[in-house]
Simulated scan of single mutants.
Amino acid sequence: MTLVFHKGFSALRYSAFIHQRESFNAVVLEGALASKGMSSFSDKNSADEVGALRAYIIHRANVKTPNDPSHALKQVS
């Protein structure tokens, strides 16, 4: 799986992990990517909070902004 990075951070709104709740929870709550630096947040967030975060990220993935890397690519092409 390829993660898209923007300003040195993984851009979660472009990650395939947002497409399935189980995959997103495995990363955020269970630390599935701990070996790559994305530790578990289960001690800081409940499953409901992570669900709300996922919904927000999905929303943001569908909103284009001038600083959005995909927006910039559309302007260049």
Rank of each mutant, 00 (worst) to 15 (best):
T2L: 14
L3M: 14
H6I: 12
K7C: 01
K7A: 11
K7E: 01
F9H: 09
S10C: 08
A11C: 05
A11T: 03
Y14F: 08
Y14S: 07
S15F: 00
S15H: 00
S15K: 00
A16G: 12
A16S: 03
F17A: 09
F17D: 07
I18T: 07
I18W: 01
I18G: 00
I18L: 05
H19I: 04
Q20M: 02
Q20E: 06
R21F: 10
S23K: 11
F24L: 05
N25E: 13
A26P: 10
V27W: 01
V27S: 02
E30G: 09
G31M: 08
G31T: 13
A32I: 03
S35T: 11
K36T: 14
K36R: 06
K36F: 15
G37W: 13
G37F: 12
M38C: 12
S40N: 11
D43Y: 11
K44C: 09
N45K: 07
S46K: 05
E49I: 05
G51S: 04
L53P: 00
L53S: 06
R54T: 03
R54L: 06
A55N: 04
A55H: 03
Y56P: 02
Y56M: 02
Y56G: 00
I57S: 00
H59N: 03
R60A: 10
V63W: 05
V63P: 02
T65M: 15
T65R: 15
T65V: 07
N67M: 12
N67L: 11
D68Q: 10
P69Y: 13
P69T: 06
S70H: 12
L73E: 09
L73R: 15
K74Q: 07
K74G: 11
Q75W: 01
V76K: 10
S77G: 10
